[in-house]
Design a protein around this nucleic acid. Structure first.
Lengths: 247, 247
DNA sequence: ATTGCGGTTTGATCCAGGTCAACGTGAATC
DNA sequence: GATTCACGTTGACCTGGATCAAACCGCAAT
């Protein structure tokens, strides 16, 4: 919680040019803004925050004040029922926005937990609304980001409602792969930041089922797994597996 | 598709006062607006559209141009995979907004189908964005509506990911009940507009399981079912059933 | 009144994935 | 370099809900 605030002014000046220099700008909120608009956005995105692996960025029930753009690192979000059951609702990586769920009730409705040491840019929401009234491009892009989250959620519903275990896992791997590509990483080789249990929670499966499915994929030559290290050997194969009607 | 356009001016004048007179205004987009702001909103919500039972309001892939506020009636939205499997992603009733999924890609990403003869108010999206730049209350409320949809989706994920068949159905009934209450109807007695198969699709269950669970609830005195007519006899009982840890 | 038909209920059986349990593995700590 | 601990793998068995099948219900068309 205690952050190093020495050299504050230097720090701020560095940050003021952040968005325009940020190599995530094409994935993140600034998408589509001209340099003048970007400068305005930079004024409101003035603070960064480090979150250590395992720490919560925010917790369900806390008052909502800001959105967070992931500058680096990896997060999960989850919701917890009164009886203790929990569900991972998503995994978020650099360039993605956290906190959209908090707008509706002005309280966060889920927990956001860093799965590795991470850094986020803080976007005070009232400033964002004010600015997006002045900058139609930003307004429209923000609406698209929210809508995209809704579409993603529908995809997860489809996955949870109609797909079998192996289809779910294939879909999950392909989705990760795609998102890594968008960030300039290999589509075929990556480290999973989450445990089998977290994957299982997200996919509506038990960790043993996740583990068994990984092993099965490996036997079939679709992937090579060693703990958290994944190499996808046959992307088309996984795609085929994913939408093969279940009997 | 061909609509009666006779008496257009009369029609418009009638509609111009629509929002402020509409008894759904506290559930719908106008929430929180003063009369002046409401008047501006009414200018852009100038058209209504009837949708017959079974007809599509919009179809996945169609260009997105407007949101739809349900004036009366009942809808379902669903997504369809290439292999034909489909998933009902929601049931919408009066005062709720349809079409948010289309903003992100400027194409609708799901189908919206009327489950009874319905009427919707058409809200051209570019107008809405323009107006919400001028009316902060509207802007904020629209953001809350989108966020609420995200939170709802997380609830469905929780349901699909962690709950057992009977818990899902109990949650479903309680949710409908609540929403009927908000509209001034009985919390305990209503007609289901959707089939067992559609309920099943939404809840990630087969229609037989839905039917059996209804019968079980009836045996236990929790509800009285006769086809589509439901009477809830024991709301606390359903609530208890819903979050009783599964073993 | 009869037929047809979409939707619903109920029974019998099956199986994907859950549950329980034992063992492996590798990174961190002393 | 031994110990610990969280995480992962694998096997054996069990069960909730899927599947298959038959009958039933209500209403719309004739």
């Amino acid at each position: 919680m205690s952050e190093n605030r020495a050299l504050k002014t230097v720090n701020l000046s560095v940050i003021k040019t952040a968005c325009s220099n940020c190599n995530l700008r094409e994935l993140c909120l600034p998408l589509g803004l001209n340099s003048q608009e970007m400068a305005k956005l930079e004024e409101i995105v003035s603070t960064r925050k480090r979150v250590k692996r395992g720490d919560l960025l925010y917790r369900a029930g806390q008052p909502f004040e800001a959105l967070y753009a992931i500058r680096s690192g990896f997060f999960k979000t989850d919701v917890i029922m009164e009886d203790g059951r929990d569900q991972v609702t998503g995994f978020q990586m650099s360039g993605e926005l956290l906190g959209l769920d908090g707008i509706s009730s002005e309280n966060h409705s889920c927990n956001a937990i860093a799965l590795e040491d991470s850094e986020v840019c803080l976007i005070p929401f009232d400033y964002l609304e004010r600015l997006s009234r002045q900058v139609p491009t930003l307004q429209n892009h923000f609406h698209k980001v929210m809508s995209r989250e809704i579409v993603r959620d529908h995809g997860v519903m489809m996955l949870l409602g109609t797909m079998r275990a192996e289809e779910r896992l294939a879909a999950f791997l392909l989705n990760l792969s795609q998102r890594f590509v968008a960030r300039g990483y290999s589509p075929a080789e990556f480290y999973l930041r989450m445990t089998r249990e977290e994957i299982g929670s997200y996919l509506g499966l038990k960790l043993e089922t996740v583990s068994r499915s990984f092993s099965k994929f490996q036997e079939e030559g679709l992937i090579a797994v060693q703990q958290k290290h994944i190499r996808i050997l046959d992307i088309p194969g996984l795609k085929r597996l994913m939408n093969h009607t279940p009997v």
